[in-house]
């Protein structure tokens, strides 16, 4: 059991009963409770993409930033022209990214079966999150007209099928990986337990709080640890303080950028709801981040980081 898993178990066991005392928690309250953790741990885990990507690549910092911004611009354009396609793309690449970080310490290569397991695992948890909180999500989304285009994606029967198939296939690929000795029997049981705990958290907790617990503890916290240990081994940083200093500039820039966009909405310069805008922002910073992390994990496997 890793420290992240222990913290996740402890958080689920302690937070779930407390939430039950408060009953239904409104979306703004959920956002207020979750935002500090997402700001302090979620955003920073993608704030050194430039350092991770440029390392070992013959690419200048300015070129990297230009390409990064270009991908963001294309993504925003996609949201404007084909919002449903942009939304589905966001979900699929997020699913792959979540799976990739979940299994990074087991796999030594990125074979098709590993990539497929990453994707299936991610699809399984994201479809669970949506399916288990569909009523809550639909209520929130019905307040904003922009979200009505996603009604075709948020269909109970469709989501049930996706959730069922992806979960069964995830379990199947875990069995296959165990049988082919890619992971140990103990790792198999641990992964099944984690999957069950994530489902439980998504089922029993309000949607934002449940997702924040997973995203911050099992995803961001783990990735930040990998990034720190990798950069320490590569002698890019000497201490945790130096690592935090490295994360700071682009984290602050991200908050500032979001602040500017929200200010534009506030002063009616940008005609869009905050929620829809936040979705586009998250999707836009996720897309290039996933490409960088894919390269980062290739580098980890190449340098036998987990052996």
């Amino acid at each position: 059991m890793s420290k992240e898993i222990f913290i996740f178990i402890a958080s689920v066991l302690l937070i779930m009963p407390i939430l039950s005392v408060f009953g239904d928690i409104s979306l703004p309250t959920q956002l207020v409770l979750s935002a500090p953790f997402i700001i302090l741990l979620g955003i920073p885990h993608g704030a050194i993409d430039n350092v991770l990507y440029i390392r070992g690549a013959s690419l200048k910092q300015t070129h990297f930033i230009a390409i990064y911004l270009l991908i963001i611009a294309i993504n925003i354009l996609l949201w404007v022209i084909f919002p449903v396609a942009a939304y589905v793309l966001f979900l699929v690449i997020s699913a792959y990214h979540f799976g990739q970080s979940q299994f990074s310490h087991y796999f030594k290569t990125q074979k098709l079966v590993h990539q497929l397991t990453n994707l299936l695992w991610g699809v399984s948890i994201l479809s669970a999150l949506t399916l288990f909180n569909l009523t809550e999500m639909k209520t929130v989304m019905s307040d904003y007209s922009e979200f009505s285009v996603f009604n075709s994606v948020h269909h109970t029967s469709g989501l049930t099928v996706i959730f069922g198939i992806s979960t069964l296939l995830t379990l199947g690929s875990l069995v296959w990986l165990t049988a082919s000795k890619a992971i140990t029997l103990e790792a198999f049981f641990m992964e099944v337990l984690i999957l069950a705990l994530i489902f439980l958290a998504f089922y029993l907790m309000p949607v934002i709080i449940g997702f924040t617990l997973y995203f911050v503890i099992l995803h961001s916290f783990k990735v930040l640890g990998e990034e720190y240990r990798f950069l320490k081994l590569a002698k890019e940083v000497k201490s945790r303080v130096a690592f935090v200093k490295l994360l700071t500039p682009f984290s602050i820039l991200s908050f500032f950028g979001m602040g500017v966009v929200f200010a534009l909405i506030h002063f009616d310069i940008l005609a869009m709801s905050y929620g829809y805008c936040l979705l586009i922002i998250i999707s836009s910073i996720t897309l290039p981040h996933v490409f960088v992390m894919n390269k980062f994990y290739k580098l980890l496997f190449k340098t036998n980081f987990y052996q």
């Binding site: 178990i9 009963p17 407390i18 039950s20």
Partner: peptide, 13 residues
């Protein structure tokens, strides 16, 4: 129930 349950959980954790 929640109050004592949480205190008990701390021992378990």
């Amino acid at each position: 129930s929640v109050q004592w349950g949480i205190l008990s959980t701390l021992g378990y954790l």
